[in-house]
Design a protein around this nucleic acid. Sequence first.
RNA 1: UGACCUAUGGUGUAAUGGUAGCACAGCAGAUUUUGGUUCUGUUAGUCCAGGUUCGAAUCCUAGUAGGUCAA
Length: 398
Amino acid sequence: MTKKKVVVGISGGVDSSVAAYLLKQQGYDVIGLFMINWHDTEGTLSGDCPWNDDLIFAELVARKLEIPFHTVDFSEQYRKRVVDYMFSEYEKGRTPNPDVLCNREVKFDLFLDAAMKMDADYIATGHYCMKEMITDENGKEIYRLMAGADKNKDQSYFLCQLSQKQLEKALFPIGHLQKPEVRQIADENGLATAQRKDSQGICFVGKVDLPVFLQQKLKSKEGAIVEIPDDLALYKTNEATQVDHEALKLLSTPYLYKAVDGVVVGKHNGAQFFTIGQRKGLNVGGKAKPLFVIATDTESNIIYVGQGDDHPGLNRKALFIKKDDIHWIRGDKAIQTGEVLHCQVRIRYRQPLQKATLYMFDEGMYIYFDKLQRGITPGQFAAWYVDEELMGSGVIQS
RNA sequence: UGACCUAUGGUGUAAUGGUAGCACAGCAGAUUUUGGUUCUGUUAGUCCAGGUUCGAAUCCUAGUAGGUCAA
């Protein structure tokens, strides 16, 4: 009877601590592995060494659980695969999601490889999501990525870019638990991390002042903030009587504003530092309703804003994902050109799932929502679910 | 240049002579393993100088600044 070997990514937080604990309870041969992915403290808010405390807590937990503990340094690859991507996306005026990439490229790639080299059967993380396995008619195993049982903490979204191969090796020991239960388990078992605050901000980098962080690489440059009235003639094209290919193209095309469409209400120091839907940081007051960014133009360095969260420029019913950017976790359920899929979609972390229909065409996929969606942002991931299962995802093109 | 109007936090605006309030912006905290959103709290103001009055953002006079009409 050989025990199955699992390498747990121990981060120094409660979730991964309890994940390791539970695996040990379940009789696995557990190894703790701590990742160091970031050394710089430039631009971080907390200042000194963000991961130093994490390492100490991770070690404490490993000792308490009496499991072997190691560290690995992926910082070079993390920079290449996550941080560089971040900068390049922001430079293009898009808004990336580094943490989705971090999972695909680091935790479930580099880390997975490292674990396999240690002869592990599985890797495990403290994500709030669940894995299920089914077999198709040929007896082939298919893995399903399910939302976490704690609807408030569900982190399946961050894993929306995983493949079957990655999922095959993954275990999510706390996915069936509620957050308070996790804390309670940690507490009852004397894990030092029981009361530690949940982590926030870009994982591994920490909580940063984004504009300051980005200014390490991206130049700031003064430009105009232009307010677009809510009755622009452009918006009349928003109506669609039926949902066909042409209508989907139209509905998912962002409005192309010009400076003359509105009035200058202020100035900013770089359009790349702002994202669609953003309210704070514009420094423009005196309006009856708050201003939201409805578009950024990094070419001419103009930020377009609209008044109120119901501004027609901020809300759209459809978005588009390029063919190459479509990723299916459930490849066996992928739809082909001409097919549609009724499902539920979220376009950002923690957004309640939205009823929508996927329409596949040769050039890519259109997602048509039942209701208007606020702040559809290029660069972010749209993830589609059927019931509790994450079926696939893609980078929003427009 | 003549007549008239206006002046309130950073911005836009409320307040029969009686506690200067609201919105937006800003700041802080909460929420959040992206960006962002949201929630809560909070800083900050009567153009200037006199006068009337128990009491002036409010009434009167002069000044300053901006605007409108007349030429």
